[in-house]
Amino acid sequence: MAQTGAVAPAAPAAAEPVARRAVSRRATGHPAGSGGWRKRLEILLFVTPALALMAVFVVWPVVAAVRMSFFRWKGFGPMDDFVGWNNYALVLKDQVFTDAVMHNFVIVVLSLLVQLPLGLAIALLLNRKIRMRGLLRTIVFVPYVVAEVIAGVVWFQLLQPGYGVVDGLVSAVGLTPPEQGFLGTPSLTLWTLFVVLTWKYLGMAILLFLAGLQGVPDELYEAAQIDGASWWQAQRRIAIPLLGPTMRTWAFLSMIGSLQLFDLVWVLTGGGPANATTTMATYLVNQGTARSNYGIAGAASVVLFVVAFVMAVLYQIFVLRRDTTEAR
């Protein structure tokens, strides 16, 4: 960071005279002598550090997780107790895990159903020419920057049964807060978790949608206004359709994020009460660390990856494909 900052100001000055000369010498033809060996060596030089780092810390562990998933292994001694698909059978028959998958999917679906319209509404609102718009945009983004752990700790205090602020607000409206609290009542915990997640991540949706809205040419709004369209009609017929690609990209990011959910759950509920909020990630970390069931953790990892991968591929084929083909 410090380096780049220091180099940056000097750059345009140094580059400019070079640019002028380039124009005059353009005619001499393509200068980048594509000497095969040299070029290949350069590409290798540039790409190797990144690929090596990813090979060691991303690819290898994933491969190791796959291998681990076929053994019964407690984390010490040689990994030689091959059990075939047994770990997968155990994981898929374990109701805690299937519930965890369910919880992940509930969060995926709820995010799309609730955060998309809500984020869109707030983005349209903030796109109007209202006072302090810049400040509002900044404020909306604050929760996104706060660590999940920190959000979790603060919300944990807010949600304390009896004396927490949320219970206070609920009582003030005239409703009775649940006796065990919003985090202690199994039937409510997942919903509570989703509310906190929405608080934390709605800012990202709003930010992306606002960015997309800025790409809508002003002339379209002007034309619509001249034709007598109301604000709402202009949004519905012009802005929202043009936001399509941005919304689809956000949906993709949201989906992948929901499947990997860990930090907030771990801090807020630890997966409880009575496994009401376990996710695939909390399940596999719990199996791998607290219980040293490395084979089971491996199998759960593979299932998580396959689910994420299949969803990503399906989404790419059925939804995002439209954007790339439309663009051509």
């Binding site: 810390f57 991303v58 562990p61 190791a64 990997q260 596999l284 998580l304 990856f305």
Partner: peptide, 21 residues
């Protein structure tokens, strides 16, 4: 594409072997 696919590898998937490594 290798890097794009890398986006799909959640850290959670590799976390236990990563810990061992």
């Amino acid at each position: 594409l290798v890097f794009v696919l890398g986006l799909l590898f959640p850290a959670a998937v590799a976390i236990i072997p990563l810990f061992i490594l």
